[in-house]
Computed example of a mutant assay.
Amino acid sequence: MAGTDEEAVAAADDALYVLTAVLLTPAKFPSVLGDDYPEACAALGLAPLADGYGLVLGQDGDGARWTVVIDDVSLVAVAIASWDCGMEYDLSPDERTVVAGLPGWPLAVAVAAPNVPAPHDPAPDIADGPPLTPPDTSVWGPAQRRLGADEIALQWATWREQIDDTQFATVGVASTSGTSTVGGSPDSDSAASADAEGSEGTGSAEQAADPEKVETGEQAEAQGGHSGIRRVLAEARAYVDSPPPLGRVRSSFAPGDARTLRADGPGWSLVARTDDIAFVLLDDEPGEVLPVGRGPELPGLLEALDKMAVRPL
Rank of each mutant, 00 (worst) to 15 (best):
A21Y: 03
T97I: 04
L46A: 05
A127Y: 06
E206L: 15
H226A: 10
P134Q: 01
G34W: 02
A304R: 06
L305D: 11
D94C: 14
A205S: 13
W140M: 04
R248E: 12
S199A: 15
P299L: 13
L49R: 13
S175R: 13
K213R: 14
P243M: 05
E297M: 13
P114Q: 01
L49C: 07
A108W: 05
S188T: 09
L298P: 04
R311L: 04
P135D: 03
S199W: 14
H226V: 13
R231I: 09
L46S: 03
A254V: 04
V232P: 02
A110T: 10
L16H: 07
G101A: 09
G300Y: 09
V76F: 00
G172N: 14
A127D: 02
V73M: 03
G295F: 04
T216S: 14
D51Q: 14
V76C: 05
I163G: 00
D128G: 12
V182D: 03
V22A: 11
Q155A: 13
T67R: 01
T274L: 10
E218K: 11
G54E: 00
T67I: 00
S180V: 13
D84K: 15
V109C: 00
L281T: 03
D35F: 12
D62E: 15
V98D: 00
D264L: 04
V240Y: 00
L49H: 12
G225Y: 06
P93F: 10
F29N: 05
L147I: 06
L33I: 09
T216C: 15
E297Y: 12
P131L: 03
D62A: 12
R65Q: 08
V240F: 01
H226R: 12
S82Y: 08
W156E: 01
S175H: 08
A194N: 10
D195R: 14
S252H: 09
L261E: 08
S175A: 13
E218I: 15
A272C: 08
V173S: 00
D51I: 10
Q223R: 13
L75H: 06
D71F: 07
A100M: 06
L246G: 08
S193I: 11
T176H: 13
G293R: 03
G104Y: 06
P106E: 01
S251Y: 04
P286I: 09
L154D: 15
P186H: 07
P122L: 08
A208W: 14
L44D: 00
E212Q: 12
R146D: 00
E88I: 06
G61D: 03
I70Y: 04
P130T: 08
A64H: 08
T170N: 15
S92I: 11
L75W: 06
P106T: 01
A169L: 05
A12C: 04
L154R: 15
A79N: 03
G265N: 03
R273Y: 05
D128L: 11
W66H: 06
P131C: 02
R160C: 03
P244R: 06
G172M: 11
F168K: 01
